[in-house]
């Protein structure tokens, strides 16, 4: 019942976003294409790399393709549908939550879905192309791809909510969260087998890049209950933590009234 209500609401918001984007059609299209080219350049790195080295610890071009597919779809869909996810800290610091607080809907959900980043759609398409090129066209591989990418997206969104909610306590967390997002994305796009010891531990915990890239990509390759369980656990735990921290922080929300005073 509530799920359905919120879904109707989300659909209405996404429609408004789409209408906004269509006011600037040319810009939308150029951003989508630009982002696809951008990703292609990064992928060119791996083409050159594997041309020389063939494989590194069980990873080759095929594995990279699937990794790029999952991360690009997860990240792209995340910022396309929930485009304010990069601006939570800013909204907290500037008092832009007022608007969402004065309307009868969940503040966080409403905030996230009130903006759409056009280039995210380019990422999304690029991810689909990668998946198509990787050539796993069986129905169950497609199903695993959908599930894996969605869970990866939840991890990605939750992590950004978590980090930026610090703005409730720190006042400004814009630079810190930009760097955290940057690090998360960078690490999720490399083979997980490169990392060992502490680094690997970090990527499964504090900076959960493994659950955005390597683990869901592994799940797309081969089904296993344990991989699925890990993913589900990570996604639900992070989401619960993120929502809880945001709600806790809302009690401290200052509506932009306590800006830094320059003396």
């Amino acid at each position: 019942m509530t799920m359905r209500r919120e879904l109707t609401f989300l659909l209405a918001l996404w429609k408004a976003n789409l209408l906004s984007a269509m006011e600037y059609r040319a810009a939308f299209i150029s951003q989508v294409i630009g982002m696809m080219l951008n990703n292609a350049v990064y992928f060119a790195f791996w083409v050159i790399f594997f041309d020389r080295f063939q494989e590194v610890r069980g990873w080759g071009l095929d594995e990279m393709l699937l990794l790029f597919a999952v991360v690009a779809v997860s990240f792209g869909l995340g910022v396309y549908l929930f485009g304010n996810v990069m601006r939570i800290a800013e909204a907290i610091a500037n008092g832009r939550l007022d608007y969402y607080l004065s309307l009868p809907r969940p503040v966080l959900l409403h905030l996230l879905a009130s903006r759409s980043i056009a280039s995210g759609f380019g990422d999304f398409l690029y991810g689909l192309i990668c998946f198509a090129v990787a050539g796993r066209w069986t129905p169950d591989a497609v199903a695993r791809f959908v599930v894996g990418s969605l869970l990866s997206m939840i991890v990605f969104l939750s992590f950004l909510i978590l980090v930026q909610s610090l703005a409730f306590w720190m006042g400004s967390a814009t630079l810190v969260s930009a760097q955290a997002a940057n690090a998360l994305l960078t690490f999720s796009l490399y083979p997980i087998t490169l990392f060992d010891g502490t680094a690997k531990f970090l990527l499964f915990t504090i900076l959960p890049a493994a659950f955005i890239g390597a683990v869901p990509a592994e799940f797309v390759r081969t089904f296993s209950w344990s991989t699925l369980a890990h993913l589900l656990l990570a996604a639900s735990l992070l989401l619960a933590l993120a929502v809880a921290l945001f709600q806790r922080g809302m009690r401290r929300y200052e509506s932009g009234s306590a800006i830094q005073v320059q003396v």
Binding site: V56, R57, L175, V176, Q179, N182, A183, T186, F187, Y190, T193, L194, F195, A199
Partner: peptide, 19 residues
């Protein structure tokens, strides 16, 4: 905060090339 970027990139490269 900005010099954190270079740390992140080099850290990843370190693992990649070491391996």
């Amino acid at each position: 905060a900005r010099s954190l970027s270079i740390i992140i990139f080099l850290w990843v490269f370190l693992f990649l090339w070491r391996t």
